[in-house]
Amino acid sequence: MRDVAVVSFAPSEPGLTGVEETETQLLFPVINEALAKIGITRKDIGFTCSASCDYLAGAPFAFVQTLEATGAWPPISESHVEMDGAWALYEAWVRLQHGDVDVALAFSSGICSRADIREVLSIQLDPYYLAPLWLDPLSFGRLQAEAVGQEPPTQAPAYTDAAAAVVLAAGDRARELVDRPAWIAGIDHRTDAHYPGVRDLSKSESARIAGQQAGVDKAPVDVAYLSAQYPHEGLILMDALGLTHGYGLATNPLMVSGLIQVGTAADAVIKGDANRSVGHASAGPCLQQNLVAVFEA
C-alpha cells in the first residue's frame, strides 16, 4: 500500500449548540484552518470527500450546500458519503492509494440542534419491525449496558453542532507539508448485524475485526480516542480493540464525532504528543458499525 498520512486536522469549537449559521458557513473556517496550517489552498486538493446527513437538516441534499465551501469551480473530483466524516477520510485514503492524486480533503458537518435527535435517530432503524417501536439511542444504550452488567445510563452526551476537516497526503508530499505526518498504519471498518436480538451485545465483533485489520495490537498505543457515548461502550470497545485506556465522547455532534475522534488521534501524532494513536468512529444502534484507524509517527 502507498504511505498516506493525515497532515492537518481542524474541528470547530467543541460543544457548539443552537448554531445559527448554515452547515456551509460552519465548514468555511474549519476547511480554511486545515489548509492554512500546512500552507496550501483549495486548488492543491486532488480529491475531496464530504459527509453529511439530510435528516439532521430535515431537507434533502445537505451536501449540495456544503459543496459551496470547497471552491468547486472549476469543477473538482468529489464524492459524498451519508455517513460519519470518518468514512469520508477512509474513502480519501482509498483514493490516495492510486498514485495519481497526492493530496485529499475529507470533511463533515452536522447541526443537531434543530430537531430532537433521539426521535430522528429512531427512523434509522428497520422500517418494518424496529422503527414503529420508536426505539431511541438511549434505550439502546440502556439495553447494551445491561448486557455487560453495567449501570444503565440515564443520559446520553448532548447532541451538538460541529464541522471538521482533515487533509491527507501521500508519501513525500506529506513529508513536505508537515514535520510529523500521522501515517495511517492501518484503517478498516466493519458492521455487525442491525438487529440487536441476533448479536451478543456484550461484545463488538465488528470493532474487533476492524481493530485487528487496522493492526491496533501490532505495537503499544499511546493514546486512543473512541466514539463511546457511555462508559459501557468504552469498556466494550477497549475490550474489542485490546486497549487499556481510551477517551470517549464528551458531546456528540452527529456525523462529525467520529471524524473528530480520528482527527484528534492523528493530531496527537502530528503535534508530537504520541507516536502511535488510535481513532475510532461508530454508527448505528448499539455500536453496530465501527471504523478504526491507527496512526504512527
Binding site: E20, E21, G58, R114, A115, V120, I123
Partner: peptide
C-alpha cells in the same frame, strides 16, 4: 412519521 424541525435563519 412526524418529525419537527426548527427553522433557523442565518444572520
Amino acid at each position: 412519521v412526524d418529525l419537527d424541525y426548527k427553522v433557523v435563519t442565518s444572520p
